[in-house]
Design a protein around this nucleic acid. Structure first.
Lengths: 262, 262
DNA sequence: GAGTGGTCTAGACCACTGT
DNA sequence: CAGTGGTCTAGACCACTCC
């Protein structure tokens, strides 16, 4: 114990928690801290790295080290699924007005930039299990990015899988040029006669891969929420599996569980 | 670009992803890697740190660097809330048989070790907002730890808040010596005439604080799930607010959203 | 150009693991 | 004891930001 960089990190952490250093404040230069604590610069940097890994500070090359501001999180509620289900059978003009993300965020369609790309793949083991189908089943893989028009980073990375044979009845569903499909996935499934019974979402947290960190513009010292959404129809078939990666520091998932009366 | 430690990390990462280095495998010693890549040891360590921060490898002092094995996650389903509600009014003997965690995990009561401590506090702003009550309202703060008998680290850190005046009618609720209360929180609330209408859970992900990392025995390069559970009764009152911290690498949250029929 | 953080070196010494 | 990772030094040079 009593390792130098830990003592330094403890002291700075205490100052931040006590509010002596407020969000947005600049820390003294690394060379100044080295003088103050009578340690070499690399040792100071070790302490600062620990604080960065906790999400407490942010390093800005050429500018300094700053106390990080907590992010205001975007909300994603599971009520969106019921809302989307109600939307799915509405006339096109109504559906086109706004989507589930707009419903969650209170934004309008013009605030968001949307991109999708499709390809067909064969189910590997993980996906085959999720669908309850044999390995090698043909799937349609759809990759989605949505971002605020004013920001460069998308707020989620979505990969959705559909069983090719289930949706091939409506060829429009196989063409990415038809995205964004007004009314969302449930409307697409409705066009081939599928109605959802329930949605299951599995949530875990982990550090981002370098690819995810780059695409979501995540600073070091942040986590992602990994969400696997499984949509199940009235016949208990899994009709859609979606993997969603969300930045942990700017996303809040809200799940409401209604309870039956006594 | 083309920074030395990034190239080295990329090469090792590719080897792990390709399966050339399998989970549990030992990497070459840092000094060997330094020779192989013709770089100094600190540079190698920088690359290894990046891989550790991604959760790909694990450092073991005096032994070596190892490819990390994926953890098998414990499941926590929101169906537990309805299950607990049904349980709350059962006779004591029935309630004592098993709790919600046992329901989720399939374990029996003897597999788990439980600890609780109580104290009264005054609501600060964050909590007052969550309850929709004035700041300074007296709350009962309950801190819970549950762990597998065979493991030393708890699998969750739970802090629950109840409005003191709402539950004071039953003095047994104010004494931590009565924990674990058979049937859980909903049974406790039932003893003062409260029935829940719904449960709301807000989920975010972030790196652990050093205190959380120590208590949950989290290795560096892991994230936690931070869950705030709000219990709302039939009169739309918030009757319980619980903050739950779960290790991201060994927890999976499952939320099922049933949908109304067309 | 001054100030600041980013990368890297070459090596010392300590602490832990296993034989 | 040998092997390995953990901490730390003192300094060089590069890259970015801002005046």
């Amino acid at each position: 114990m009593a390792v130098a960089y830990e003592r330094i990190a403890d002291e700075l952490r205490a100052a931040i928690r006590a509010g002596e250093l407020k969000p947005g404040d600049k820390l003294p230069a690394e060379s100044k801290l080295a003088e103050r604590f009578r340690r070499s610069v690399p040792t100071i940097r070790e302490a600062l790295r620990a604080l960065r890994d906790e999400g407490l500070i942010e390093k800005q090359h050429g500018r300094g080290n700053f106390v990080r501001r907590p992010r205001t999180p975007a909300l994603r509620s599971n009520l969106r699924h019921q809302w989307e289900k109600g939307r799915a059978r509405e006339p096109l003009t109504e559906r086109a007005r706004t989507g589930a993300t707009e419903h969650d965020t209170g934004l309008t369609v013009g605030d968001l930039v949307f991109h999708a790309s499709y390809r067909t793949i064969e189910a590997h083991r993980d996906l085959a299990e999720a669908f309850g189908l044999p390995e090698g089943t043909t799937l349609l893989e759809r990759t989605y990015r949505t971002r605020y028009a004013a920001e460069s980073a998308p707020f989620s990375l979505v990969t959705s899988y559909l069983v090719h044979d289930l949706i091939a009845r409506n060829p429009a569903l196989l063409d990415e040029a038809n995205e964004p499909w007004p009314g969302g996935s449930q409307s697409q499934l409705y066009s081939v006669g599928i109605e959802l019974d329930r949605v299951e979402e599995r949530v875990t947290a982990r550090p981002p891969t370098p690819e995810e960190a780059a695409e979501l513009e995540l600073p070091p010292g942040t986590s992602v929420l990994a969400l696997r959404k499984t949509s199940i129809d009235l016949d208990d078939r899994v009709v859609d599996v979606s993997d969603v990666v969300l930045p942990g520091d700017r996303t809040e998932l809200l799940f409401t569980t209604p309870l039956e009366r006594w």
